[in-house]
Design a protein around this nucleic acid. Structure first.
Lengths: 340, 340
DNA sequence: TTGTAGGCGTTATCAA
DNA sequence: TTGATAACGCCTACAA
């Protein structure tokens, strides 16, 4: 233990000006790289800055400039996202790369409690960011409302059910992709195909179920659909267990995400079934999970980093007051491995 | 596509004061919940706020208050952390919970390029946060230097090699834990134990190797140590392949992390070896990886959320100008499953 | 090319 | 209990 030294007061433009024997305006001009500053002034200012240890105060600059060059990135449901869904990391990195190139700072804000909700809402209204990217928003979320009310430039990753149409969204075709992979699974000769359907209160979850239903057509059997609350490993494992009790003759499963599929495989193995010999399993996301299961998953590749990057582009466009794109749909792709 | 409406200018305290027929000072007092504001004034202000749609500007407040109630959380090496190490999510959530309770906003900043380094450094110096938590810092990192120079209240998760001693750290006993689990592995009767040693340029990596070496004593064989750059699945898989070529008679492996262990198991399986019958494998972290491998990993449990929470406490303590704790060591625990 | 002065939206001090 | 007024640190006309 030791006592921390009192933090010395920070030098300001004023101090630099005094030290250099010029005016604050000139210092400001130098700092911002404008022309019209003489060599003599420049030298004096540089020396002064070094001497007094000046660093610009961004907060003050933001206040007068009325912009922050910062974009918020809001993460809801952090537990399921961070712990079970490696996609969130890729989305973050994709968005960060894009914002970084535009010289904007990405600040990610986590919403993990009611306290967080209020505080983050205040943060957004407080003029600390110019815009915001939101993943896994819910319809009547306070954050969403605040964004709406302030008309804060925003882009959603995924389409929150019932969201106002004035916002920008970047999505994938969940329905079409779910339909395609279900058809592909059926094409392997499976007769009794079930689905572990997650997060039906979100568009992504509902659409994946709709795609599954559409693919099966007449052979669709409602009893083979097991709804689970989250896109998580444990939800998949538990859901698979219940489904097997109801339908022990199952020979194929579409899991709503790779994490769910991994849990399902675990439950299948525990029940003595072999994958893919006895039961074929397909997932969704092509997240890091897909290559970690044994056998590796056949799944739908979702361009996670691309989703983040595109969302970033959508808010940057709004900041530039360009035409607003309201929806951007990214392509998916089926990757066929060994689990079916 | 549609053109976005011009954002209307935001109402200020000034506008509210005008509308309510009181002074700015009174409005400010009301907004901050101070006493000494009459019922009449209160009603008028409430009505005015609703009418003009006033929301406080946090940036301006921060400027005059000289504090932000925000703490930065810096993530280096985001690829390996986000994609391969689920621990980062738990650390984030642990820190966020603790900061949230103290009514502080956690803002996560990602450093993924040189541009990011500079921008984040400016962000930290700019008066936008009161303190900072740093994970996986490197010794001569510009961020670290900035934090040092500004004497910004900080706490590091993990001990960057060569870091200045004036900072606060929260660590685990990597050496002791590595030693313990290696001894445990040896106790199962393994004779030829190797290690896939990751990130030797970081304290955690170097210490885990040191623990491994210490545990084996005379039977330590340098040829059985395979260094890999990162704590990642792919590094583990590739490292295991190379190690097997050198030492096909191997019967035990200590992998520097669970992700590395998962990769190693994959390589072992590909080589036709069974785990744990032919080769016993142990990992480190008890991250989500540990339960996803088949068989599940025997490993060292690291209190990830606790690390984040403790780091948060360390910076909060500094913000309160309390005695500074320079190092806090959290306990680990061996969890023995089926992989050895 | 440089200095002056006003303002960004708040809070805080001090009379009234 | 309230209202002026001066900061906070910076940018930016405008004048010199």
């Amino acid at each position: 233990m030791s006592t921390r030294p009192a933090r010395s007061k920070r030098a300001t433009v004023h101090d630099v000006a005094l030290e250099a024997g010029v005016s604050r305006g000139t210092v400001s001009r130098y700092v911002n790289g404008e022309r019209y500053v003489s060599a003599a002034a420049r030298d004096a200012i540089e020396a002064a800055i070094a001497k007094v240890g000046y660093v610009p105060n961004t907060a003050a600059r933001n206040l007068v400039m009325q912009r922050t060059q910062a974009v918020g990135f809001i993460v809801h449901e952090p537990h399921s996202l961070f712990v079970d869904d490696p996609n969130i990391g890729s989305i973050l990195l994709g968005a960060n790369t894009e914002l970084s190139q535009a010289d904007h700072q990405m600040v990610v804000l986590i919403v993990d409690s009611d306290r967080d909700t209020d505080r983050v809402a205040r943060y957004l209204t407080g003029g600390l960011v110019d815009g915001v990217i939101i993943v896994s928003a819910r319809a009547d979320d306070p954050i969403t409302r605040v964004v709406e009310r302030l008309q804060l430039p925003a882009a959603y990753v995924g389409h929150p059910p019932g969201a106002a149409s004035s916002a920008a969204f970047v999505v994938i075709d969940n329905l079409g992709a779910a339909r395609s992979i279900t058809e592909r699974l059926a094409a392997t000769g499976r007769r009794r195909i079930g689905m572990i359907a997650a997060a039906l209160d979100r568009d992504s979850g509902a659409d994946r179920l709709a795609g599954f239903t559409a693919a099966l057509g007449d052979s669709f059997d409602e009893a083979l659909v097991e709804p689970v609350p989250f896109y998580s490993y444990s939800a998949g494992r538990d859901g698979m267990r219940r489904l097997l009790e109801r339908a022990p003759d199952l020979d194929g499963v579409f899991a709503a995400s790779d994490a769910v599929a991994a849990g399902a495989i675990e439950a299948l193995r525990a029940s003595g079934r072999r994958v893919p010999q006895d039961v074929g399993v397909v997932g969704f996301d092509d997240s890091a999970w897909a290559r970690r299961t044994t056998p590796q998953l056949s799944t739908v590749r979702q361009p996670a980093a691309g989703l983040g990057a595109e969302a970033a582009r959508l808010v940057l466009a709004q900041l530039r007051e360009q035409e607003m794109i309201t929806e951007r749909r990214l392509d998916t792709e089926i990757v066929w491995r060994e689990s079916a």
